[in-house]
């Protein structure tokens, strides 16, 4: 299952989830920046848990639910990232939003330390971290209000 739709993927053994998403399903919102699980740009959710799709083999996914940035386009974090100016070059942004969405799903009102802990696996070379925190806090504040 990818973003709520069922897909059957026929690829060689050893194909990563990231490559399957990008090359077979055309979901290029998921980025590959290091290809070896160090930077977080390729983060997607597997049953709601953030995983590094560039080191996840697609054959191990089975029938679990994969959520990519394309499945989170209506998430309030997307607008919050824009409002807070939390994207510069934007290459890490989809992965950041996928990680942040998983954080907010598990912890609707995270504190600073929880944000830092949950987001430290997502590198941003442009240095948007302060703005990302502001975006997450903005959505968390809505959660408080709601």
């Amino acid at each position: 299952m990818v973003n709520g739709g069922l897909h059957e993927v026929d690829v060689p053994v050893g194909t990563t989830l990231a490559d399957a998403l990008r090359d077979v399903l055309g979901l290029t919102g998921t980025k590959i920046a290091c290809g070896e699980g160090h930077c977080g740009a390729c983060t997607v959710q597997l049953d709601g848990v953030p995983v590094l799709s560039c080191i996840t083999l697609v054959h191990t996914v089975g029938e679990r639910e994969v959520t990519t940035i394309e499945g989170l386009r209506e998430h309030p974090l997307v607008q919050a990232f824009v409002e807070a100016d939390a994207t510069q070059c934007g290459f890490c942004t989809p992965g950041q939003i996928v990680s942040a969405a998983a954080l907010l799903a598990a912890t609707p009102r995270p504190g600073h330390d929880e944000i830092v802990h949950a987001m430290s696996g997502n590198l941003c070379r442009c240095g948007t971290y302060p703005k990302i925190e502001r975006a997450i806090e903005a959505v968390a504040a809505e959660n408080r209000g709601g």
Binding site: L27, G29, K31, I97
Partner: peptide, 21 residues
């Protein structure tokens, strides 16, 4: 001003060289 291309980047719609097919 928020970025005029902010949504494209945040929604994963911005097409980078890496995304070319």
């Amino acid at each position: 001003a928020t970025r005029v291309d902010g949504l494209a980047r945040a929604r994963g719609e911005a097409r980078y060289t890496q995304d070319l097919r």
